[in-house]
Design a protein around this nucleic acid. Sequence first.
DNA 1: CTGAAAGCGCTAACAC
DNA 2: GTGTTAGCGCTTTCAG
Lengths: 350, 350
Amino acid sequence: MSKDDILAQRRPVTIKDVARLAGVSPKTVSNVVNNRPVVKPATRQRVLDAIRALDYHPSALARGMVTRSRRLIGLVLADITNPAYPEMVEGVASLARQAGFMVMLCNTGRDPDEEQRYVHLLIEQRVDGVIIASSRMDSQAAEMLTSAGIKVVLFNRHPQQYSVSFVGVDNEGGGYLATRHLLDLGHRRIAFIRGTRGASTSIEREQGYRRALAEYGIEPDPELIGWGDYHPEVARTAADLLLRMKNRPTAVFAANDVMALSVIDAATSLGLRVPEDLAVMGFDDIAIASHRLIGLSTIHGDLGQLSREATTLLLEAINGNLTEPVRKILPVYLVVRRTCGAQRLTAIHE
Amino acid sequence: MSKDDILAQRRPVTIKDVARLAGVSPKTVSNVVNNRPVVKPATRQRVLDAIRALDYHPSALARGMVTRSRRLIGLVLADITNPAYPEMVEGVASLARQAGFMVMLCNTGRDPDEEQRYVHLLIEQRVDGVIIASSRMDSQAAEMLTSAGIKVVLFNRHPQQYSVSFVGVDNEGGGYLATRHLLDLGHRRIAFIRGTRGASTSIEREQGYRRALAEYGIEPDPELIGWGDYHPEVARTAADLLLRMKNRPTAVFAANDVMALSVIDAATSLGLRVPEDLAVMGFDDIAIASHRLIGLSTIHGDLGQLSREATTLLLEAINGNLTEPVRKILPVYLVVRRTCGAQRLTAIHE
DNA sequence: CTGAAAGCGCTAACAC
DNA sequence: GTGTTAGCGCTTTCAG
């Protein structure tokens, strides 16, 4: 059978076609494709030529069926439009690619039902592992995946039981640092804008906020705590409410940078100057925070690094080199820029 | 064979296991799973119970092997950390999910070799279709995928031959509008910062820039054209160079918003005020551009809408409802904010 | 309406 | 070194 005969069939060329053209068995082609050094150079070359001639691409499907490994990982996240995620996605994607894995993107839009649906799809796709960064505490996603034999790493979320690995930043510590900084600057009425209901990151950052207030002997005022859902519009509304109070806060700590930016926007449109009339702190240190027109004071955690750790962990688990679940918490630090109003008191760390 | 016997085997449960437990043939299970209305309600219920009892998830792999459709699309993009992309990714992801497709993320980092590698992986994965948004004109990616029988939609890139569908915004028109606006404001030394070498978006936006200059009888000054690679750091360096010239430009039009932000950052650190000492225009209208602290004047194209069009087109092509390649170009409009310095001359469109 | 058999493209196990 | 056989889990004929 000639090259043209095979191509004339107009259907995907298979390992058999290559074998026939090269005059060898399918097994030999397989050995060549998988770089197994058991093939005579001459044979190898014949096979390679046939592959090129037919433009053969081995089917990852068929291979996956028998090897039971798809070389695929899932990445579940809450909202890709939050600038904190892309950094993380980049880290996961590049490490995964280097290891020969592709990543399936699952953007849940913070909808638990959608997360649930994605979990099913991921199981059906027989992915090797999943990184979950959608960060709700009550989600059963990790358990479902695990019981389907899929490795899981939780990203920035505390597991309820310690059966799965997780990596995260020190959210409580960051919340403390941010609030403590505002307190040190003399603020006493400090508002807090929460993230998504049930998100452990938000809960922990709030715990840090409360710890700092407690140290100063301040009772947290429920009126000064709003819900922002980690969403710019929602946070914007919450900020408006806070800033229109008769006895408005002199400082706002938002559970992430996106919401902090909304606070600034709200303040500015109400004629309040930041930081003179209102100090603002965020969390995440997204790229735009360091822009000179913004200068957002915030808490920095190395999400790029964290995502690489998460991926490495997941890949090790997939390779079976990880029997025990691992916990890893990266430290965070305070980044003092413009919006907290500390410029005259502290050197700018930039 | 009882439920416990089957589960005791500790290997993925298959359609046969379900069939055995329900006391029917695999075919019947298959009919139930695929919602084919040919199964008696009673049988159907027995099967459903068995599925639930065994926690059975049909393998998309095995199904894909025989149906030759993976319900998978690839999304190739240049740099996920560019804030213009997430908006687009969100549109693609949500529409794909609704249609029961998952998306494989391919972040090329603007590296043609990496793009090439991803194309091979995508072919091996037997994806049904691919949206390419990595935007180099000379790439062979679309041709390779097409000849492997995979549907392709080009996003914001002109195909060299019209064998593939594409959607995009009117880049040339946007470049013209931006430049024309700066000219109308009285600027005559207008710099342009290019994007990635070979990216059609950059080439076309520059064509618009040149057309506007030509209308005013201005010869483009090569010294006023820099390369920014659509990258904040690279653009920052380019901007520095431009702004330190003895005869520096009075306005800069950057081929995207991320680079425009770098220009502003560079100007600010050199002590130049924007817009008083330097007018700046971007392109894309990313979310942060409308923030009150930024107020970036820019060109708006509806990337969310565009990504939805691209996905719809791709899905139609996959379903075989699209025989002819389609071209779709969305219009853009000028968004006048703070950084172009036109606030006193024009109403603010916001 | 349901069952049996064949086969999708590949690799693992075993021959030669 | 290389060929042969069986089978991964599903759907699709084709019978009943």
